[in-house]
């Protein structure tokens, strides 16, 4: 009866089900986004909260709306922000590439083992998540520091005489990011490679293709959606990464996450911090849209098959 009543006003079970994710996005993405957007058009001042209100009633009749675009202009004027964005993208890009180079063979190997071993291997990939992310990054401090595990091992083996400085270098940041995000590369790749139709490879072999040829011409092209998914899952969080560069990196490493922190906490300039966040979001939306299109292409391709 209720269903029929709802149907009369145009609400079916289908719309209710699809409404849930939309409601989720509205609550946890769109509303915070609008609030941040609003603050980004404001101006900092010493008060609670520390920015000027956007709307003001004049004589209780006229609603005055002040939009301050200066914060965005500020981002363009000072080359700090551009350099921080570009450097973050560079660091995230290199990390993603390394993750792909390590993650692809791992995902491939897992997908090709016996199902019983496969589950154990997958469990091992996910296992680090059972420990706090922060603790794992701290553990790397213990491994990489001058009198840490790695240097001590190398010295006792006689490979080096003096400890190599690894902590507070870019190397440590890449190690940290690749280590932390590798599972996000392996899992989508595995999901993709595991679905791969092995008869295609047999057909390729029957037609005289060598194993590496059939890998390059069959497996690799078919796994592109998995590669894109894995790369985006690593790249996007890595761009905004704050914890790993702060704990492991050289203080001179310029990352947008750190710039955002400085604006928000040190300068107490919420409007500029919000503008930085909005700009970062726009930077990230572009790859997400690209991903969306790749996904569409994949489902389109599936229909043809």
């Amino acid at each position: 009866m209720i269903a029929r009543a709802l149907k009369r006003v145009g609400i079916t079970g289908r719309t209710l089900v699809t409404a849930v994710p939309y409601f989720w996005l509205l609550l946890f993405f769109l509303i915070p986004f609008v609030i941040v957007l609003k603050i980004s058009f404001s101006d900092a001042q010493i008060s609670m909260p520390p920015y000027q209100p956007l709307f003001a009633w004049i004589d209780e009749k006229v609603l005055q709306v002040q939009l301050n675009f200066a914060n965005y202009a500020f981002l363009v004027e000072d080359n700090l922000y551009w350099k921080a964005y570009l450097n973050s993208i560079f660091v995230a890009g290199v990390s993603t590439l390394i993750c792909l180079l390590i993650g692809y063979p791992m995902a491939y190997a897992i997908a090709r083992t016996r199902p019983s071993t496969r589950n154990v291997l997958l469990l091992l990939v996910v296992l680090p998540f059972w420990t706090s992310f922060l603790l794992r990054v701290y553990a790397w401090i213990g491994i990489l520091k001058n009198n840490g595990l790695l240097n001590n091992a190398l010295m006792s083996l006689g490979i080096i005489d003096e400890p190599i400085r690894m902590l507070q270098t870019d190397f440590a940041v890449y190690v940290g990011i690749v280590y932390s995000y590798l599972p996000f590369m392996i899992l989508p790749l595995y999901a993709n490679l595991e679905k791969l139709d092995l008869t295609l490879l047999e057909a390729a072999a029957d037609l005289g293709s060598r194993p590496w040829e059939s890998f390059l011409k069959v497996t690799l092209p078919l796994s592109v959606p998995g590669i894109i998914a894995g790369c985006l899952l690593v790249f996007i969080p890595a761009v905004g990464e704050f914890v790993i560069p702060t704990l492991l990196g050289d203080p001179g490493m310029l990352m947008i996450g750190k710039v955002l922190w400085t604006e928000f906490f040190n300068n107490r300039d919420w409007p500029v911090a919000s503008a930085v966040a909005i700009a970062l979001l726009l930077f990230l939306v572009i790859p997400i849209m690209y991903y969306q299109r790749a996904q569409d292409a994949e489902s389109g391709g599936g229909l043809h098959r």
């Binding site: 915070p32 603050i39 969080p237 905004g240 947008i256 906490f265």
Partner: peptide, 21 residues
């Protein structure tokens, strides 16, 4: 300074701002 995982720093900031907006 870090008590939360700030993978997406922008989102974390967004969440912080919700309370005051």
């Amino acid at each position: 300074n870090i008590s939360i995982r700030t993978g997406l720093a922008s989102l974390a900031i967004a969440a912080t701002l919700v309370g005051c907006g």
